[in-house]
Simulated assay, not measured.
Amino acid sequence: MNELTTKLALVRDNMNEHGLSAVRLRGVDWFAWMTCGGSNVVILTTEAGVAEVLVTTDGAWVLTDNIEAARLEQEELPPGLQVWAHPWQDSAQREAFVAARRGSGAVASDRPSAGEVPLPERLTRARWSLLPEELERYRALGRDAAEAMTEVLLAAKPEWTGFELAGAGAEALWARGIHPTLTLVGDERRLPVHRHATASKERLGGRAMLVFCGRRHGLFANLTRFVYFRPPSAEERRLAADVARVEAAAFEVCRPGVTLGQVYSTLVQAYATAGHPGGEAFHHQGGSCGYLSRDVVARPGSTVALELYNAMAWNPSLPGSKIEDTVVVSPDGLEILTVDPRWPTVQVAGRARPDLLVR
Protein backbone atom coordinates (compact mmCIF):
# COMPACT_ATOMS: atom_id res chain seq x y z
CA MET A 1 0.00 0.00 0.00
CA ASN A 2 1.12 3.55 -0.64
CA GLU A 3 1.08 6.22 2.06
CA LEU A 4 -2.41 7.54 1.35
CA THR A 5 -3.92 4.05 1.16
CA THR A 6 -2.25 3.12 4.44
CA LYS A 7 -3.61 6.21 6.19
CA LEU A 8 -7.12 5.83 4.81
CA ALA A 9 -7.16 2.22 6.03
CA LEU A 10 -5.98 3.36 9.44
CA VAL A 11 -8.67 6.05 9.69
CA ARG A 12 -11.41 3.64 8.61
CA ASP A 13 -10.21 0.97 11.02
CA ASN A 14 -10.59 3.49 13.83
CA MET A 15 -14.00 4.53 12.50
CA ASN A 16 -15.17 0.92 12.55
CA GLU A 17 -13.81 0.35 16.06
CA HIS A 18 -15.60 3.40 17.48
CA GLY A 19 -18.80 3.34 15.44
CA LEU A 20 -17.98 6.51 13.50
CA SER A 21 -19.57 7.31 10.17
CA ALA A 22 -17.11 10.05 9.15
CA VAL A 23 -13.92 11.84 10.15
CA ARG A 24 -13.23 15.52 9.42
CA LEU A 25 -9.61 16.69 9.56
CA ARG A 26 -9.42 20.49 9.67
CA GLY A 27 -6.18 21.42 11.38
CA VAL A 28 -3.00 22.31 9.53
CA ASP A 29 -1.31 19.36 11.24
CA TRP A 30 -3.91 16.70 10.45
CA PHE A 31 -4.52 17.98 6.92
CA ALA A 32 -0.80 17.63 6.17
CA TRP A 33 -0.75 14.15 7.67
CA MET A 34 -3.79 12.91 5.74
CA THR A 35 -2.70 14.47 2.42
CA CYS A 36 0.81 13.02 2.68
CA GLY A 37 2.53 16.36 3.12
CA GLY A 38 0.00 18.71 1.54
CA SER A 39 -0.77 22.11 2.96
CA ASN A 40 -4.02 23.95 3.63
CA VAL A 41 -2.14 27.00 4.90
CA VAL A 42 -2.56 30.51 3.54
CA ILE A 43 -2.13 32.52 6.74
CA LEU A 44 0.94 31.07 8.47
CA THR A 45 -0.41 31.46 11.99
CA THR A 46 -3.69 29.65 11.39
CA GLU A 47 -4.47 26.38 13.18
CA ALA A 48 -7.12 25.32 10.66
CA GLY A 49 -6.50 26.18 7.04
CA VAL A 50 -8.51 26.80 3.91
CA ALA A 51 -9.50 23.17 3.35
CA GLU A 52 -10.33 20.02 5.29
CA VAL A 53 -10.37 16.29 4.58
CA LEU A 54 -13.58 14.31 4.93
CA VAL A 55 -13.27 10.52 5.18
CA THR A 56 -16.29 8.21 5.16
CA THR A 57 -16.51 4.44 4.90
CA ASP A 58 -16.58 4.61 1.12
CA GLY A 59 -15.10 7.95 0.11
CA ALA A 60 -12.50 10.63 0.83
CA TRP A 61 -12.64 14.25 -0.25
CA VAL A 62 -10.81 17.50 0.25
CA LEU A 63 -13.47 20.13 0.98
CA THR A 64 -12.66 23.73 0.18
CA ASP A 65 -14.02 26.76 -1.63
CA ASN A 66 -13.74 27.76 -5.27
CA ILE A 67 -10.84 30.13 -4.51
CA GLU A 68 -8.53 27.31 -3.46
CA ALA A 69 -9.75 24.20 -5.28
CA ALA A 70 -7.64 24.28 -8.45
CA ARG A 71 -4.42 25.24 -6.67
CA LEU A 72 -4.83 22.53 -4.05
CA GLU A 73 -5.57 19.88 -6.66
CA GLN A 74 -2.61 20.88 -8.81
CA GLU A 75 -0.02 21.62 -6.13
CA GLU A 76 -0.83 20.09 -2.74
CA LEU A 77 -2.73 16.82 -2.99
CA PRO A 78 -1.74 13.22 -3.76
CA PRO A 79 -3.66 11.18 -6.33
CA GLY A 80 -6.66 9.49 -4.78
CA LEU A 81 -8.27 12.42 -3.01
CA GLN A 82 -11.20 14.09 -4.74
CA VAL A 83 -11.64 17.85 -4.42
CA TRP A 84 -15.11 19.21 -3.78
CA ALA A 85 -15.56 22.99 -3.75
CA HIS A 86 -18.36 25.36 -2.84
CA PRO A 87 -18.72 29.07 -3.67
CA TRP A 88 -16.56 31.00 -1.23
CA GLN A 89 -19.54 33.02 -0.01
CA ASP A 90 -21.71 29.98 0.78
CA SER A 91 -20.03 27.66 3.28
CA ALA A 92 -23.42 26.14 4.16
CA GLN A 93 -23.08 24.05 1.00
CA ARG A 94 -20.11 22.26 2.60
CA GLU A 95 -22.17 21.23 5.61
CA ALA A 96 -24.93 19.98 3.31
CA PHE A 97 -22.36 17.91 1.39
CA VAL A 98 -21.08 16.35 4.61
CA ALA A 99 -24.60 15.70 5.92
CA ALA A 100 -25.50 13.84 2.73
CA ARG A 101 -22.53 11.48 3.07
CA ARG A 102 -21.88 11.06 6.78
CA GLY A 103 -24.44 8.34 7.52
CA SER A 104 -26.16 7.95 10.88
CA GLY A 105 -23.13 7.46 13.11
CA ALA A 106 -21.05 10.00 14.98
CA VAL A 107 -18.55 12.27 13.23
CA ALA A 108 -15.09 12.67 14.75
CA SER A 109 -12.76 15.59 14.16
CA ASP A 110 -9.38 16.90 15.28
CA ARG A 111 -11.22 20.17 16.00
CA PRO A 112 -14.74 19.04 16.82
CA SER A 113 -17.74 21.35 16.57
CA ALA A 114 -21.54 21.09 16.46
CA GLY A 115 -21.91 17.70 18.12
CA GLU A 116 -18.76 16.11 16.68
CA VAL A 117 -16.51 14.00 18.91
CA PRO A 118 -12.71 14.02 19.30
CA LEU A 119 -10.53 11.69 17.28
CA PRO A 120 -9.89 8.27 18.81
CA GLU A 121 -6.73 8.16 20.90
CA ARG A 122 -5.38 5.25 18.87
CA LEU A 123 -5.53 7.33 15.70
CA THR A 124 -3.78 10.24 17.41
CA ARG A 125 -1.00 7.95 18.63
CA ALA A 126 -0.66 6.38 15.19
CA ARG A 127 0.24 9.79 13.75
CA TRP A 128 3.27 9.92 16.03
CA SER A 129 4.74 6.77 14.47
CA LEU A 130 6.10 8.07 11.18
CA LEU A 131 5.80 6.04 7.98
CA PRO A 132 8.82 5.49 5.69
CA GLU A 133 7.64 8.18 3.25
CA GLU A 134 7.22 10.65 6.11
CA LEU A 135 10.68 9.87 7.43
CA GLU A 136 12.20 10.60 4.03
CA ARG A 137 10.47 13.99 3.93
CA TYR A 138 11.58 14.64 7.50
CA ARG A 139 15.22 13.79 6.79
CA ALA A 140 15.27 16.17 3.84
CA LEU A 141 13.63 18.89 5.93
CA GLY A 142 16.10 18.38 8.77
CA ARG A 143 19.09 18.70 6.45
CA ASP A 144 17.72 21.80 4.78
CA ALA A 145 16.81 23.52 8.05
CA ALA A 146 20.26 22.80 9.48
CA GLU A 147 21.92 24.11 6.31
CA ALA A 148 19.83 27.28 6.52
CA MET A 149 20.94 27.77 10.11
CA THR A 150 24.61 27.37 9.21
CA GLU A 151 24.30 29.70 6.23
CA VAL A 152 22.78 32.46 8.34
CA LEU A 153 25.14 32.24 11.31
CA LEU A 154 28.20 32.13 9.05
CA ALA A 155 27.00 35.41 7.54
CA ALA A 156 25.80 37.09 10.75
CA LYS A 157 27.59 40.16 12.09
CA PRO A 158 27.74 41.47 15.67
CA GLU A 159 26.28 44.80 14.57
CA TRP A 160 23.14 43.12 13.22
CA THR A 161 20.00 43.58 15.27
CA GLY A 162 17.96 40.64 16.44
CA PHE A 163 15.36 41.60 13.87
CA GLU A 164 17.97 41.38 11.10
CA LEU A 165 19.16 37.95 12.23
CA ALA A 166 15.59 36.66 12.47
CA GLY A 167 14.89 38.09 9.02
CA ALA A 168 17.95 36.40 7.55
CA GLY A 169 16.86 33.14 9.16
CA ALA A 170 13.36 33.45 7.73
CA GLU A 171 14.78 34.23 4.29
CA ALA A 172 17.05 31.16 4.38
CA LEU A 173 14.14 28.94 5.39
CA TRP A 174 11.76 30.37 2.77
CA ALA A 175 14.43 29.88 0.10
CA ARG A 176 14.20 26.15 0.88
CA GLY A 177 10.40 26.07 0.91
CA ILE A 178 10.24 25.96 4.72
CA HIS A 179 7.72 28.01 6.70
CA PRO A 180 9.57 29.99 9.41
CA THR A 181 6.99 29.35 12.11
CA LEU A 182 9.45 30.43 14.81
CA THR A 183 12.76 32.31 14.70
CA LEU A 184 13.94 33.19 18.20
CA VAL A 185 17.02 35.39 18.59
CA GLY A 186 18.96 35.93 21.79
CA ASP A 187 21.58 38.69 21.75
CA GLU A 188 24.50 38.99 24.16
CA ARG A 189 22.70 41.10 26.76
CA ARG A 190 19.38 39.27 26.72
CA LEU A 191 20.64 35.69 26.45
CA PRO A 192 21.24 35.17 30.18
CA VAL A 193 17.98 36.95 31.05
CA HIS A 194 15.27 35.36 28.85
CA ARG A 195 15.00 31.67 27.93
CA HIS A 196 12.51 32.57 25.17
CA ALA A 197 14.45 35.47 23.71
CA THR A 198 12.25 36.75 20.90
CA ALA A 199 13.94 38.95 18.28
CA SER A 200 14.43 42.60 19.19
CA LYS A 201 15.99 45.77 17.84
CA GLU A 202 19.08 45.32 20.05
CA ARG A 203 22.46 44.61 18.44
CA LEU A 204 23.73 41.06 18.71
CA GLY A 205 27.03 42.05 20.28
CA GLY A 206 29.52 39.36 21.16
CA ARG A 207 27.29 36.31 20.73
CA ALA A 208 23.85 35.25 19.60
CA MET A 209 21.43 32.34 19.76
CA LEU A 210 19.17 31.46 16.83
CA VAL A 211 16.25 29.03 17.16
CA PHE A 212 14.26 27.59 14.26
CA CYS A 213 10.94 25.80 14.20
CA GLY A 214 10.60 25.29 10.46
CA ARG A 215 7.63 23.57 8.80
CA ARG A 216 7.55 21.84 5.42
CA HIS A 217 5.09 19.18 4.25
CA GLY A 218 3.48 19.72 7.65
CA LEU A 219 6.53 18.44 9.56
CA PHE A 220 8.53 20.55 12.01
CA ALA A 221 12.31 20.78 12.24
CA ASN A 222 13.35 22.27 15.60
CA LEU A 223 16.94 23.30 16.29
CA THR A 224 19.03 25.82 18.25
CA ARG A 225 22.54 27.09 17.54
CA PHE A 226 24.95 29.67 19.00
CA VAL A 227 27.44 31.93 17.20
CA TYR A 228 30.27 33.77 18.97
CA PHE A 229 32.05 36.82 17.60
CA ARG A 230 34.59 36.60 20.43
CA PRO A 231 36.19 33.73 22.37
CA PRO A 232 33.66 32.09 24.71
CA SER A 233 34.43 32.46 28.38
CA ALA A 234 35.21 29.43 30.52
CA GLU A 235 31.81 29.80 32.21
CA GLU A 236 30.02 29.90 28.85
CA ARG A 237 31.85 26.76 27.77
CA ARG A 238 30.95 25.08 31.05
CA LEU A 239 27.25 25.87 30.71
CA ALA A 240 27.20 24.64 27.10
CA ALA A 241 28.80 21.37 28.21
CA ASP A 242 26.32 21.03 31.07
CA VAL A 243 23.21 21.38 28.89
CA ALA A 244 24.69 18.88 26.44
CA ARG A 245 25.12 16.38 29.28
CA VAL A 246 21.53 16.95 30.38
CA GLU A 247 20.35 16.29 26.83
CA ALA A 248 22.53 13.18 26.61
CA ALA A 249 20.83 11.76 29.69
CA ALA A 250 17.42 12.24 28.04
CA PHE A 251 18.65 10.67 24.80
CA GLU A 252 19.89 7.65 26.72
CA VAL A 253 16.42 6.67 27.96
CA CYS A 254 14.39 7.49 24.81
CA ARG A 255 13.02 4.31 23.29
CA PRO A 256 9.56 3.00 22.33
CA GLY A 257 7.33 2.56 25.37
CA VAL A 258 9.19 5.01 27.61
CA THR A 259 6.85 7.71 28.87
CA LEU A 260 7.48 11.42 28.59
CA GLY A 261 7.14 11.54 32.37
CA GLN A 262 10.06 9.12 32.69
CA VAL A 263 12.17 11.24 30.36
CA TYR A 264 11.23 14.33 32.35
CA SER A 265 12.36 12.65 35.58
CA THR A 266 15.65 11.78 33.89
CA LEU A 267 16.11 15.41 32.88
CA VAL A 268 15.43 16.59 36.44
CA GLN A 269 18.07 14.23 37.79
CA ALA A 270 20.52 15.21 35.06
CA TYR A 271 20.25 18.89 35.96
CA ALA A 272 21.02 18.02 39.58
CA THR A 273 23.94 15.80 38.61
CA ALA A 274 25.37 18.61 36.46
CA GLY A 275 25.25 20.96 39.43
CA HIS A 276 22.04 22.80 38.52
CA PRO A 277 19.28 21.33 40.72
CA GLY A 278 15.89 22.74 39.76
CA GLY A 279 17.16 23.94 36.38
CA GLU A 280 14.17 22.35 34.66
CA ALA A 281 11.82 24.85 36.33
CA PHE A 282 12.76 27.82 34.14
CA HIS A 283 11.75 26.52 30.71
CA HIS A 284 9.89 23.53 29.30
CA GLN A 285 12.23 20.72 28.33
CA GLY A 286 10.71 19.76 24.99
CA GLY A 287 8.91 16.56 24.07
CA SER A 288 7.54 14.67 21.11
CA CYS A 289 7.03 16.42 17.78
CA GLY A 290 6.25 15.82 14.13
CA TYR A 291 3.24 17.62 12.67
CA LEU A 292 3.43 20.17 15.49
CA SER A 293 6.53 21.84 16.91
CA ARG A 294 5.64 19.82 20.01
CA ASP A 295 2.86 17.24 19.96
CA VAL A 296 3.19 16.71 23.70
CA VAL A 297 5.46 18.69 26.04
CA ALA A 298 7.02 16.45 28.69
CA ARG A 299 5.65 17.11 32.18
CA PRO A 300 6.02 15.41 35.55
CA GLY A 301 4.10 12.14 35.60
CA SER A 302 3.09 12.20 31.92
CA THR A 303 1.95 8.75 30.84
CA VAL A 304 2.26 9.48 27.09
CA ALA A 305 4.64 6.87 25.71
CA LEU A 306 7.05 7.23 22.83
CA GLU A 307 6.29 5.22 19.70
CA LEU A 308 8.67 3.60 17.26
CA TYR A 309 9.67 6.27 14.69
CA ASN A 310 8.40 9.01 17.02
CA ALA A 311 10.10 12.37 16.48
CA MET A 312 11.29 14.37 19.50
CA ALA A 313 13.02 17.63 20.28
CA TRP A 314 14.48 18.16 23.75
CA ASN A 315 15.68 21.62 24.69
CA PRO A 316 17.40 21.73 28.08
CA SER A 317 18.66 25.19 28.96
CA LEU A 318 20.63 27.19 31.50
CA PRO A 319 21.17 30.96 31.66
CA GLY A 320 22.64 31.93 28.29
CA SER A 321 22.87 28.32 27.08
CA LYS A 322 20.59 25.86 25.31
CA ILE A 323 20.75 22.83 23.04
CA GLU A 324 18.14 21.43 20.64
CA ASP A 325 17.81 19.16 17.64
CA THR A 326 15.05 17.07 16.10
CA VAL A 327 15.59 13.32 16.47
CA VAL A 328 13.65 10.13 15.72
CA VAL A 329 13.39 6.93 17.77
CA SER A 330 14.50 4.13 15.44
CA PRO A 331 15.14 0.41 16.03
CA ASP A 332 18.88 1.18 16.03
CA GLY A 333 18.65 4.05 18.52
CA LEU A 334 18.21 7.75 17.90
CA GLU A 335 18.58 9.32 14.46
CA ILE A 336 19.41 13.04 14.53
CA LEU A 337 17.68 14.78 11.62
CA THR A 338 18.81 18.42 11.88
CA VAL A 339 22.45 17.98 10.92
CA ASP A 340 24.72 20.05 8.69
CA PRO A 341 28.26 18.62 8.41
CA ARG A 342 29.66 22.16 8.18
CA TRP A 343 28.66 22.93 11.75
CA PRO A 344 31.35 22.31 14.41
CA THR A 345 30.59 19.45 16.77
CA VAL A 346 31.75 18.02 20.06
CA GLN A 347 31.41 14.41 21.23
CA VAL A 348 28.94 13.98 24.07
CA ALA A 349 28.20 10.45 25.31
CA GLY A 350 29.27 9.02 21.97
CA ARG A 351 27.24 11.39 19.80
CA ALA A 352 28.33 14.39 17.74
CA ARG A 353 26.50 17.37 19.19
CA PRO A 354 26.55 20.99 18.00
CA ASP A 355 29.39 23.05 19.41
CA LEU A 356 29.56 26.83 19.66
CA LEU A 357 30.40 28.43 16.30
CA VAL A 358 33.29 30.80 17.05
CA ARG A 359 34.10 33.26 14.30
Rank of each mutant, 00 (worst) to 15 (best):
L141C: 12
V296K: 00
E235Q: 13
H86I: 05
T45F: 11
S21D: 10
A305C: 10
R101K: 07
F163Y: 15
P112H: 15
A114R: 13
V246C: 07
E134D: 14
S109K: 00
G205C: 11
E280A: 05
A145E: 05
A155M: 04
L357N: 02
A48L: 06
A100Y: 10
N14K: 13
S265I: 04
L184K: 00
L25T: 13
L267D: 10
A272K: 03
V297W: 04
L119M: 04
L260N: 00
E188N: 09
R190Y: 07
A108F: 08
E52F: 03
I178A: 02
F229M: 10
S317M: 02
V11Y: 00
V185M: 04
Q93G: 14
P192I: 05
S293W: 05
F163D: 12
E76I: 09
Y264W: 12
Y309A: 02
L72N: 01
V227Q: 03
A92T: 14
T224R: 01
R207F: 11
R137K: 09
G103P: 02
P180M: 07
E147N: 15
A313F: 08
R195N: 09
L54T: 10
M34E: 04
S91V: 09
L334R: 12
R101H: 13
C254W: 04
L131D: 06
L184N: 02
D13G: 10
A352L: 14
Q93L: 15
Q93V: 13
A234H: 05
L153T: 05
A208W: 00
G287M: 10
D242S: 14
G206Y: 10
L318A: 11
F163Q: 08
G218S: 10
D13R: 09
R342D: 06
N66G: 07
E134I: 08
E171Q: 14
S317H: 03
E95A: 12
R255H: 13
C36T: 07
W174T: 09
